[in-house]
């Protein structure tokens, strides 16, 4: 008598992921898919893929998927959610997509309190295009477009998305998590699930920022990349829940 203790979530398709070895996108995909399974919302969920490394996410999730233009996923999600309020709508976006080209869409869908779930992958670099500076690239970090390191005086300062969005009245949840250790992965799962549950409970805009690695473009081994994340990213982007509540509603 055997019992299944581990299997591919129903919300993930059975195709090889295109992500580089050691990249944490795969873990985060799985956490999102497990959440969709556990909440039993697969047949009602619409996912929005971005432009960036996760551009092919529409091939990996088993729900209905839309591929948005660069940065516009929250606007597309708004269009789906506003016309189909009973659908569960999530976006899956990288740092360039969400915090550079799509900043306006991010901030305004957040402040409107769009009842959507945003999974934000922050790895401090543009992966898909081969390692250029991201809006979250930390000071001193070398990328192909900051070959001498990022200077505050030249490229300006990075952006802390959760801290910024936590000031907005439309935001229900803004939490930063990491997937560098089993404990952190468990916590990330908990936050992602909360972000979806919030939508079911109609609480408003929920964003989970996941600190992620890019061994390929950082030029590190997967395990060194995890260590780099701990040494450099977490100090600059502290883990934690910046807002946990409910979007303000009419009359409040």
């Amino acid at each position: 008598m055997y019992k299944t203790v581990f299997e591919r979530p129903k919300a993930l398709t059975d195709v090889p992921l295109h992500y580089c070895p050691g990249c944490t996108h795969g873990i985060i995909h799985r956490l999102v898919a497990e959440t969709i399974d556990e909440l039993e919302i697969l047949d009602n969920t619409v996912g929005i893929a971005p432009v960036g490394c996760s551009v092919f996410a529409y091939n990996y999730f088993n729900c209905d998927m839309i591929e948005a233009a660069h940065g516009r996923a929250p606007a597309v999600a708004t269009g789906v959610k506003r016309t189909h309020p009973d659908n569960i709508v999530f976006t899956y976006q990288g740092d360039g997509d969400l915090a550079a080209i799509g900043t306006a869409e991010t901030v305004h869908s957040a402040t409107r309190g769009e009842n959507i779930t945003v999974i934000f992958i922050n790895n401090c670099i543009y992966g898909m295009t081969g390692g250029q500076m991201a809006p979250t690239t930390i000071p001193g970090q070398v990328t192909t477009t900051t070959p001498y390191g990022r200077f505050r005086s030249i490229q300006g300062n990075p952006i802390r998305v959760c801290e910024m969005l936590s000031t907005l009245d439309g935001v229900a949840l803004a939490a930063r998590v990491s997937v560098d250790t089993p404990a952190n992965i468990n916590n990330a799962k908990k936050m992602i699930k909360k972000a979806f549950q919030n939508q079911i409970d109609r609480k408003g805009f929920s964003i989970v920022e996941v600190l992620s690695t890019c061994p390929t473009n950082w030029g590190l081994s997967p395990s060194d990349a995890l260590q780099w994340l701990r040494d450099n990213m977490i100090p600059y982007y502290p883990l934690g829940t910046y807002k946990d509540g409910e979007a303000l509603k009419d009359g409040e």
Partner: peptide
């Protein structure tokens, strides 16, 4: 306008 056309895309996609 950029957001508006993308909201339209989402609505139409749905």
């Amino acid at each position: 306008e950029v957001a508006a056309i993308n909201m339209l895309m989402g609505a139409s996609a749905a």
